[in-house]
Amino acid sequence: MTSHQSTQTMKPATAAKKLGVYLEATPAEFRQGVVSRAELNELQANPPQWLRELRRTGPHPRPVVAARLGVSIAGLARGGVTEPLTTDQIEALKQENPEWLQRERATQVEVRKEAARIKKKNAERG
């Protein structure tokens, strides 16, 4: 019995998510095709110029924006940030440091402390 290895492919949206880039900002040829696992691995290992530029300047998807601001995705929404932001916009928000951003960062700190406390407690039990 021989096993036939089929090529795994994914939608461009899935590939963009795995690459950490905003799909709408990718080149048309990327958005219109399918991406194989091998192509994804190649993009991760040797990113082309467009991918390097997108990662550097954006626009960035919400998970990346949230991580760069040190808040949760829900915190972004509570702060009224619903659109992708560029690196410059993220830096401007950090400089501005609005009240909602301060509040959401403080919430994230508390969430991380609680997660660490629970992890420690579970480790002591086990």
Rank of each mutant, 00 (worst) to 15 (best):
1 M>K: 08
2 T>P: 11
6 S>K: 13
8 Q>L: 09
9 T>I: 10
11 K>M: 04
12 P>L: 04
12 P>Y: 02
15 A>H: 04
15 A>E: 03
20 G>I: 12
20 G>C: 09
20 G>E: 10
22 Y>N: 14
22 Y>L: 08
26 T>W: 02
27 P>G: 13
28 A>Q: 14
30 F>A: 09
34 V>Y: 13
35 V>H: 03
38 A>W: 00
38 A>P: 00
42 E>F: 01
44 Q>Y: 04
46 N>S: 09
47 P>C: 13
47 P>Q: 12
49 Q>E: 14
51 L>R: 13
51 L>K: 12
52 R>T: 14
53 E>N: 13
53 E>V: 13
55 R>T: 12
55 R>K: 15
55 R>H: 11
56 R>M: 06
56 R>Q: 14
57 T>E: 06
57 T>H: 05
59 P>F: 06
60 H>K: 10
60 H>P: 03
60 H>Y: 11
61 P>W: 07
61 P>T: 11
62 R>N: 05
63 P>E: 05
63 P>G: 07
68 R>F: 01
69 L>P: 00
70 G>P: 05
71 V>K: 00
72 S>C: 04
73 I>F: 02
76 L>G: 02
78 R>F: 00
81 V>I: 15
83 E>C: 03
83 E>D: 12
84 P>N: 12
87 T>F: 01
88 D>S: 13
89 Q>I: 01
94 K>S: 03
94 K>Y: 01
94 K>N: 02
95 Q>I: 02
97 N>D: 15
97 N>L: 05
101 L>F: 01
104 E>A: 01
104 E>S: 00
104 E>Y: 00
105 R>I: 03
108 Q>M: 11
112 R>H: 09
112 R>Q: 14
113 K>F: 03
124 E>A: 06
125 R>T: 10
